[in-house]
């Protein structure tokens, strides 16, 4: 009874679907989170009778055949890299990107990771760092006792130092982009790393060459829409139940076969 195994692939696929949806809902309020979506494909078919096969020696062919499918498989859980809404926070070092691009973060091991989460702070030495204390690239140091920290749309950071009336530019936050954003790999902490599928990172500057601009005092919210997640969840749950029904129906059929002869 192949139906049992076919339905089992359906249950496994819907279980994964619910996992993906629940992760989206759990990250509803995560800054810079990009929602994932489970994508399915049908498994290979057994061609019991192949369409177009010779039906007679007169050259007639079968107009239709018998194809029995083996169920469903998950092909991937790509992220939807659409823009999230910006919400004003008023923080000096809260930056949202409006458009293309990722902030580049240097990890402790010297490699780079990329993020849309622009909630930055300064560390003990005045460097601009992310929530884990990893420096934003290129490294920018805010001088001690400075005030009036301003980040313009191009990402230029300027401060007013004591004894001066004109702001001085202390650095420019860069952006990085990828030809296939959906190919980035998440490593947690709102960070992504590049993969062969994403293509090599291309560094650039905000508001330039198709990069987005920076909005100081704003953070990018997750692009998760609760309504669509909940309706997806209902659909996934019901699909799971229906696959379970197929399992029990196949079981009943086998039971009636075993109970046939006393």
């Amino acid at each position: 009874m192949r139906a049992l195994y076919t339905a089992a692939t359906g249950m496994a696929a819907q279980e994964l679907n619910v996992q993906v949806i629940s992760n989206n809902i759990a990250n509803l309020r995560t800054t810079g989170y990009k929602k994932q979506r489970a994508q399915f494909q049908d498994l290979i078919y057994e061609h019991v009778k192949r369409v177009g096969a010779q039906a007679s020696d007169q050259g007639t062919v079968l107009p239709v055949g018998i194809d029995i499918g083996g169920g469903v498989k998950t092909v991937g859980t790509p992220r939807l890299m659409t823009q999230g809404t910006l919400s004003p926070t008023g923080g000096d070092l809260d930056i949202a990107i409006r458009g293309e691009g990722y902030f580049k973060i240097q990890l402790p091991d010297g490699t780079y990771a990329y993020t849309r989460d622009g909630s930055f702070t300064t560390d003990g030495t005045g460097r601009v760092v992310n929530a884990q204390g990893n420096p934003v690239q290129p490294t920018i140091t805010i001088p001690q006792n400075s005030s009036g920290l301003t980040i313009n749309q191009q990402g230029q950071v300027s401060v007013t130092t004591p004894g001066s009336t004109t702001p001085t530019v202390v650095g420019q936050i860069g952006l990085t982009r990828f030809i296939n954003k959906a190919g980035l790999q998440s490593i947690g902490d709102n960070l992504f790393t590049d993969t062969p599928a994403s293509g090599p990172p291309q560094d650039g500057l905000a508001n330039n060459d198709g990069f987005g601009d920076m909005q100081q005092g704003n953070l990018e919210q997750a692009n998760v829409e609760v309504v669509s997640e909940i309706s997806d969840l209902i659909a996934a749950q019901r699909a799971y139940e229906m696959n379970a029904k197929v399992v029990s129906a196949a079981d009943q059929m086998m039971q009636s076969t075993t109970g046939m002869f006393r």
Partner: peptide, 28 residues
């Protein structure tokens, strides 16, 4: 019984692919 079993396989495949993009249902 033999064809019912095969029809069951077809139904199971349809239900398993209830969430597959662009899937077209089979009928025996």
């Amino acid at each position: 019984q033999m064809v019912l079993e095969r029809q069951m396989d077809v139904v199971a495949n349809n239900v398993a692919n209830a969430n597959t993009n662009g899937f077209k249902a089979d009928k025996s």
